[in-house]
Structure formats: structure tokens, C-alpha cells
Design a protein around this nucleic acid. Structure first.
Lengths: 152, 152
DNA sequence: ACTGAAAATGTCGAACC
DNA sequence: GGTTCGACATTTTCAGT
């Protein structure tokens, strides 16, 4: 699908606040409510907009300690990869997990309450998974930028 | 604020789909529409819910090449840190940037179109910033898990 | 927390530029 | 592609209990 300038602006606005009314969006984009309505429906149908979600302030729910974990498997057979992946998905603390190229195999992004909670997570959950070779944890000491929006 | 079980379930539901009607939420949680309505308002007022956003399918907008970049500054004076941070925030390609402990200073999460776009980003934007010592790029070859939700 | 009701929006068809 | 108009369904919002 081809996105024109208005689509892009619309997407940018919805990435900042998806609960604004079509009326408000229409005003900002100088179009009618119906036109905006139809563009949004199209973006949803084309799955360009894949989801509408609430974002939570993590420090208010005791989950603001962020750790990146670099992880290596003991071996790289397909079986090892898939079993590890299907298991790591289930861990609630792991909000992101990417298979990467380079010195290690995976990067995990982990939100927990504090260092003690991280220790418990490591001991009881992460290193309990099969086929794990080594891990390296990097602790976040400051959030400079953290957005879900891709500016078009 | 103290969250009871219903609040937690409500937050979990809104993190998956924040556009469901209060009616639908009420049914799932066995409460009246108004009760849910007031709980949501409370969560918003307390800033536990900080934002409602649309999530975009990145491959449909040519931004599905994900790179993690580990970055070191040449020096760690407060001035160097703050100027770097205020500059890196402005880069649209950088969706996340965290100050971390360890071998390097920052981890950046960067979404671009492809390797060529990444090269251009590096040459023209990132390494154009002041005070940068070294960078190390890690390329993502697979997305195992990528959620914005924190399960309560 | 609930019921009930008013106000606002969402939704969509139709006629048209 | 865009517009306006209109109408009904649905939701949001809130007062009263």
C-alpha cells in the first residue's frame, strides 16, 4: 500500500495518542471526519496499524529495573534454537528477545523490580532453560529515549 | 496506589487492546460498565496508564531492519553526556536509548529500512554527533518476542 | 458498585465535486 | 481521491442511589 503525506501524519498522530476522536484528528489534518475514518479503517485492514495498546508507567508497578542480557547457546542446532525460543517467550519478565548476529546469539530486554528480583529471575528462570551457554547482563542506569513510535 | 486483582487484569487487557469498549471489558471482568470506567479513569489520573498508542507493522513501512548499537563516549564528563543525550534524542531512527553500566555507555535501538539505510544513518547522523568514542553494531536476524506489555 | 439517561462519537450509506 | 448530510447504533460520561 502506498502512503501519502496525510496517511503518514495520521500514523504519527495515532502513534502518540490512538484514543483521540476522529473529529480531533480531522481538525488537525484539515479533512472531514469521514475521510479520516476511512483512512484509519484502511490502515487497520492493511495491518499497517497492527494493535492499539496502553503503555504503563513501569515505576508505578515496580518493574522499572531494566536489564539487557546477551545470551549464547551451547550449540546452534535448529533444535536448540527452537526449544530455547519457545521457552523464553513464556517468561513474563522478558519483554523482548531478538536473535542477533555476532558474538552472542540473543539479546533479551528484561523488566523487573530491582537487582534482587533480577537475581531471582536469572537463577530460577533464565538459567533454568535448556541449552544456555553463557549470559552477560548489562544494567540500565538511565533512560534517555524510549518510544514505540516510528516517525514517518 | 494499590492495585487489586481486577485492576491488574484490567491493565493486562488494556495493554493488549486499549480500544475495546468498557462494555466488553466489563463482561470479561464481571463488573458493570461504570465500575470499569471509573477504574480506568483512576489509572489514567494516577498516571499508571501513561499513554494509548497505535503500534505499526514495521515491515509495511520499510523500517523493519533492527540494529542494536553499543556506544562509548570519548570521555564521561557531565557535559559530554548531556550534549550527546540531547542530540541522540532527536534522531528519528533511534527508538530507544539507554545509559548503561559496563563496557560501553549507551545502548541504542535503531529501526531503519535495510543495511544500506543503516550505513547512511551511521555515517551521516550517528557518528556526526560530538564526543563519540566508538560504536559496535549488532544486527537482528530474527524477532523472537517483542511486546510492550508488562504482565501483572 | 450499580442503574439509568444525556451527550458525544462511531459508523456508514447516499449524493455529489 | 475528496465533500457534506443524515441517521442510527454504540459508547462515553456522569448524576443519583
Amino acid at each position: 500500500m502506498n502512503l501519502d503525506l496525510i496517511d503518514k501524519k495520521l500514523i504519527n498522530l495515532l502513534q502518540k495518542d490512538c484514543k483521540q476522536t476522529t473529529k480531533k484528528l480531522a481538525l488537525q489534518l484539515n479533512l472531514s471526519v469521514t475521510a479520516i475514518y476511512e483512512r484509519i479503517k484502511k490502515l487497520e485492514k492493511e495491518k499497517i496499524i497492527k494493535q492499539y495498546v496502553a503503555l504503563i508507567q513501569k515505576n508505578k508497578i515496580d518493574r522499572s529495573f531494566l536489564v539487557f542480557c546477551h545470551l549464547k547457546l551451547i550449540q546452534h542446532s535448529k533444535e536448540y534454537l527452537t526449544t530455547f525460543e519457545s521457552e523464553v517467550i513464556k517468561l513474563d519478565e522478558v519483554s523482548e528477545c531478538f536473535h542477533v548476529s555476532g558474538d552472542y546469539d540473543y539479546i533479551l530486554k528484561i523488566y523487573v523490580k530491582d537487582m534482587q528480583a533480577y537475581r531471582e529471575f536469572m537463577v530460577n528462570k533464565l538459567t533454568a532453560l535448556k541449552h544456555i551457554g553463557s549470559t552477560h547482563s548489562i544494567f540500565t542506569i538511565g533512560e534517555v529515549k524510549n518510544t514505540t513510535a516510528i516517525t514517518l
